[in-house]
Design a protein around this nucleic acid. Structure first.
Lengths: 409, 409
DNA sequence: TTCAATTACTTGAAATACTGGACTTACTAT
DNA sequence: ATAGTAAGTCCAGTATTTCAAGTAATTGAA
């Protein structure tokens, strides 16, 4: 429930609600007749006709032909058409800025990549973003009026109400407002949110969201975070800081203190960072492990990828390290399942590149801790989008606003 | 979002929404003028007048006099009036059935207590409930038409959509439908839900809910559970099984396997049951502890209360046992804070009777694991209602339906 | 004391969005 | 061909909103 909902409502509000619902239905069903909408939504036929006419006029829906008759006039099939409007999405990473223009269906028009200039501070990154946005508009050959907004995925704690980025360790930001800064140079509506939540939104709009309305999107990379979707809506918590999954304590007795002073947290033990660190700390007694080999004998070159690769080759030490991490993952996901009772958990990020070995262990370890009455109910899925997950999420940040008629109209 | 919301909406839908919001505002503010409602809600003055008239006609609101003028016509003050309608609430416990009739403001009219007959199975408990309900109506001297419904708090997994109780270990029920059974003998609307959720609802309607809209209500008793309130609405999850807090793994390395085969779960280590069991298991090496004394030398008579009492008296072994449990609590609540970002966590149940020693340790242990950026933001509060928390919750189950115009009107 | 200004609430008219019945269009089955 | 069935449209009726204007009660300053 946003601030909007607590305001008084008038007649146009319910039209908007019905429009949103009709559009959602059409988008989800690929092809759909007006009559089918009448049946599924409980609205009257005239109302549906009028709403559909409006959607067609707005160029969000097109007629794509006729369906089979069942003993009467054949239905005219409707389809979502997202090819008339465009959005910009930016994945603002600590090393790379990735950005793209896409249409509302998520088809990329242009793509740009740029090294993030961490040295220059907040102003420098803002000017990089402005530069990227301008370049994208230019290269896409679109008129600015055809672009409905800019969505950004930012690493850090984002307060969704006032647009403040409360804290971002990677960029070393505290209480900065990206929107006011960017708005000084860019006339388009600007939206941003935490990386994990944005990635989850991407799944909601273009990925598993077509099947599930209650799911959690976990980023398993160098760091760990989670974006939570409840009833098809992002879950923020009180300040917008919900889903701090990486800082969950999964092994309180562990003596290792990771970065940020966290002891026994999932991130310090089972992230890309955590796996690499654990290997570095303990390899002393396992000089014959393949890991050191692959790292060219240099401790500092050990990465999570090397550990996983060696585990796949049945290196005993690598297997131990990997198993420890996967135990932590099992406990972490178990907590999500018991507390949120989701339909699915979608996992993205570098660790998913390990492939089936990762998911297999994960499912095994979840079963180990499971609450027997909820057996096998939760789907554990890889993200549909691989490395593009966050960028597609950033695009979806704007698209979801369009689908809810919060921009353009 | 319930099934209702996915249906097409018409004008009366938004009228209902506005009525709910106006009533909520009046209830929360004790005294309020129409003009103040206009300002706070953004509705037009005529609309507010009409809605208030309707609420007065429904006997949910009364005028209680005039406020001070600030240079114009003095405002007529409105107040919530919950004295015209009544509800029945039942706390269906494994040992005791506690039930009460109250008005909509939560004032008890009559109260009944009865031993639960666990031996007789499902039918016997149903007939006990029917008996309790009939006796309550009789003793309250009310006409059945004045009672708006019956609310029950049930221990177990309740599927809120179809009313099935999927699983209840204490009663040994699997997939039973209490509503269809009770409806055969009782004409009133019947509602029920999981104990923890019901207790949370009680806090929402009559307790901390006046101050917080995002909070979690944790039951810390012989067992452990949590009811989650998000944006002033109960959070169910996919099947209605969200908040299975007691089964959270807080010490995966612990070798003890508690009831139900759970290893390292919060409930097996830190519930009333868990604390007593831990004392029983380890007292062998601490024969001189006061615990054995208070338990009359009988291992089986050791309870959590005895352990806590001894800890207060600085018994070393009792302190150890208590500290272990409190460490687990710290980790568990930490998980809730990081995943849900709530405004407050309200704790009810037997362990809170330990008093300040419990809450002090709790706050200390949460700080130990905290994510520094969210420092001290979460309120850790005892329940406002003590032993009545669940019973008041059961009453609130119906009251919340009335306040949302889902019954009576 | 009087009366304009202020604040609170009420009434009536216009606007908006839904519903449901009657009607048109278009195809199927016999 | 003709009756039957389903899809889609038109139009009057209903409910609820807001806007604009009007009434009511009090303050405060000439």
């Amino acid at each position: 429930m946003t601030a909007r909902d607590s305001k008084g409502k008038d007649a146009s509000y319910i039209n908007r609600l019905n429009k949103i619902e009709v559009l959602k239905l059409i988008r989800e069903s690929e092809q759909l007749s007006r009559a089918a909408i009448v049946k599924r939504m409980g609205l009257s036929a005239p109302t549906v006709t009028r709403i559909v006419d409006c959607l067609i006029k707005d160029k969000l829906v097109i007629m794509t032909g006729e369906g089979d008759s069942t003993g009467g006039r054949p239905p005219k099939l409707l389809q979502f058409d997202g090819t008339h409007d465009f959005v910009i999405g930016i994945d603002l990473g600590s090393t790379t800025i990735r950005a793209a223009v896409s249409d509302l269906e998520g088809n990329f028009i242009t793509e740009i990549e740029m090294q993030t200039d961490l040295e220059g501070g907040f102003e420098k990154i803002c000017s990089q973003l402005v530069q990227v946005i301008r370049k994208l508009i230019l290269r896409s050959k679109l008129d600015e009026s055809q672009i409905l907004g800019v969505g950004l995925a930012v690493a850090g704690l984002v307060n969704f109400e006032n647009g403040m980025i409360a804290y971002s360790p990677v960029f070393n930001w505290k209480n900065v407002n990206l929107r006011t800064e960017l708005s000084r140079h860019i006339a388009l509506p600007i939206f941003y949110d935490n990386v994990s939540l944005v990635t989850a939104l991407g799944e909601l709009v273009h990925g598993v969201g077509k099947e599930y309305k209650n799911f959690i999107c976990v980023n398993a990379g160098y760091g760990i975070g989670a974006g939570i979707i409840i009833n098809g809506v992002p879950f923020y918590g009180n300040h917008g800081f919900a889903g701090e999954f990486g800082h969950l304590i999964v092994d309180s007795k562990n003596s290792y203190v990771g970065k940020g002073g966290l002891r026994g947290s999932l991130e310090s033990l089972a992230s890309g960072y955590g796996i690499a660190e654990n290997a570095k700390r303990n390899i002393g007694a396992h000089k014959n492990s393949k890991i050191l080999n692959k790292a060219n004998g240099n401790l500092e070159e050990i990465t999570a990828k090397i550990v996983v690769d060696c585990a796949k080759e049945n290196d005993a030490f690598a297997n131990d390290i990997f198993d420890v991490a996967m135990d932590c993952w099992g406990i972490g996901l178990d907590a999500l399942i018991k507390l949120f009772d989701p339909e699915a958990i979608v996992i993205s990020g570098g660790l998913t590149k390990s492939g089936e070995i990762f998911f297999k262990k994960l499912r095994e370890n979840i079963l180990k801790n499971e609450f027997k009455q909820l057996k096998n109910e939760v789907q554990i899925l890889p993200s549909s989008f691989g490395v593009d997950a966050t960028l597609i999420g950033a695009l979806s940040l704007v698209i979801s606003k369009v689908l809810q008629f919060e921009v353009k109209f």
